[in-house]
Design a protein around this nucleic acid. Structure first.
Lengths: 174, 174
DNA sequence: ACCTGAACACCGTTCAAGT
DNA sequence: ACCTGAACACCGTTCAAGT
């Protein structure tokens, strides 16, 4: 949808405070009220932007192996946060029940099952992993960390390993 | 400062979208422009609110032991998120260099040192822990999780233990 | 189906002026 | 020192009307 791509471009260029219905309309060469036929509401527009981010996430095929798929997903979320730093934090504020959020959850859940984690532990392990990854990516792209990018690369990899050890416990070789 | 308490009350009652300079002024029985003598800017007002949240955090004395102090800090952050769900997520978006943020970091760093973690690992361990705790609290209070509060209580405790095992590694008894 | 004009009730912020 | 009035350039959204 063209409205969403115009809105995303605006947010990327000027932050959420530059993202107004009127500015989107201006960029599309149209009257503000014309948008309401396509998007319903400003809240719906923000929800739509979050979905665009999640839809952009590259999904590696099953050939990658569970560890590779988890790593790709984490790296993808981090890259998305860097590409769209103003929109990304909204991920933490909306219920994870949209198609995009469910898709991410399914990838993580499947990988954890394939790693041998008992079904009873999959849900909480998935929440722990995605909470950390999204929190890290949002913190980094929002400037909360003071460390440089190279240091954060290493730290993110280290934290991922530690988190998997912690979550998989004796289900994995430690 | 009275401006900040009025602003916090507004945000708690109606969310960030109800928080305007004009509404704060209305609540204080004053003209909007009067605020600018006290707070400089709407951005500064939001920063001030984050600092109020961090200042509210109860700090347990050294008598608690490092594990107790970490647990208290995590519980305190989570309680703060539930009390002020609209303001809390701003914590993830601002550089952690304000007095309040430094205070939290100092508590975590000291506890980790006392637990025997080598100085070279303290910084990244602190980032991992606070990122997870703040991400979890923001997710929970923002409604991202679908689980109920009792389940999340247990999960938070479990995740805290796992995270400490992961971060302290052989520096701690596992 | 899709878009527009006019309107309403709001914003943040500046500046000169008042006490 | 602290507050106000008037003003400027914006918002989101509704509603009736146009093609």
């Amino acid at each position: 949808m063209m409205v969403l791509t115009a809105a995303l471009a605006l947010a990327d260029e000027g932050g959420l405070e530059e993202l107004s219905m009127r500015a989107v309309a201006r960029r599309l060469g149209v009257t503000p009220m014309a948008l309401y036929r396509h998007v319903g509401d400003k809240g719906a527009l923000l929800d739509g932007l979050v979905e665009v981010l999640l839809a952009e996430l590259p999904m590696s095929g099953a050939s990658a192996g569970w560890r590779g798929r988890l790593g790709d997903m984490a790296a993808g979320l981090r890259a998305t946060a860097r590409r769209h730093p103003s929109v990304f934090p909204l991920l933490l504020l909306r219920p994870a029940v949209t198609p995009g959020a469910l898709r991410v959850r399914a990838v993580v859940d499947d990988a954890l099952r394939e790693a041998g984690l008992p079904e009873s532990e999959v849900r909480r392990a998935e929440r722990m992993i995605t909470t950390f990854v999204i929190g890290f990516a949002a913190s980094e792209s929002g400037g909360r960390f003071s460390a440089g990018p190279a240091e954060l690369d290493a730290e993110f990899a280290w934290a991922g390993d530690r988190l998997l050890e912690a979550v998989l416990g004796e289900a994995w070789g430690r």
